[in-house]
């Protein structure tokens, strides 16, 4: 042992500082981790799901695009297939509409009702939507079809989460 003697006061000081430091670190570390978590989160743009649709092949006629992705509910992962109606509007912008009827959730189809050409038609209760997704007054739906945000990557179309639009 060294000659240097540690007094009782010094010993208590050292141990208290040490233990106190550990406790403070134990409390602060998780807080810091929580604070920086959004930054560390991998691919924040991962919410966009790739589809097999080539951007160059999109026409002015709405086409059905099916895309599937893995949905994770806590530990349970399941494969989900979604559909979008995709077309280019007169300005050349890509529009992707959700096929889910705003009335009671059936799946709408393009141009299937002979009396209503160039409209989206819901087979359940005869709901109609214009090409841009606006509900036709006098039919059951009370809102426009939801739209998917779109992105492009390597010539393929990427779709985000469908969003409702403001009231028609």
């Amino acid at each position: 042992m060294s000659k240097h003697r540690v007094s009782r006061r010094q010993f208590l000081n050292y141990t208290l500082t040490g233990v106190g430091g550990f406790m403070a670190a134990g409390m602060l570390m998780p807080m810091v981790r929580f604070a920086v978590d959004p930054v560390l989160k991998a691919n924040a743009s991962g919410d966009f799901i790739p589809t097999p649709q080539k951007i160059s092949e999109i026409t002015e006629e709405p086409t059905r695009v099916d895309f599937s992705f893995e949905q994770q509910d806590a530990w349970y992962t399941s494969e989900v297939t979604n559909t979008a109606w995709v077309y280019k509007d007169e300005n050349g912008e890509i529009v992707a509409l959700s096929p889910v009827c705003k009335h009671l959730g059936c799946v709408v189809d393009w141009n299937t009702d002979k009396a209503n050409q160039n409209r989206f038609y819901c087979p359940c209760h005869g709901g109609l939507y214009e090409k841009d997704g606006t509900n036709v007054p006098g039919t059951p739906p009370i809102a426009k079809l939801d739209v998917y945000p779109t992105q492009e990557k390597d010539g393929f179309l990427l779709l985000g989460k469908a969003k409702p639009r403001e009231e028609a």
């Binding site: 009827c101 009335h103 009671l104 959730g105 059936c106 799946v107 819901c122 087979p123 359940c124 209760h125």
Partner: peptide, 11 residues
């Protein structure tokens, strides 16, 4: 029945 229900959910 799964896709069938999805298609005609509202009716």
């Amino acid at each position: 029945t799964i896709p069938l229900e999805r298609q005609f959910k509202g009716r």
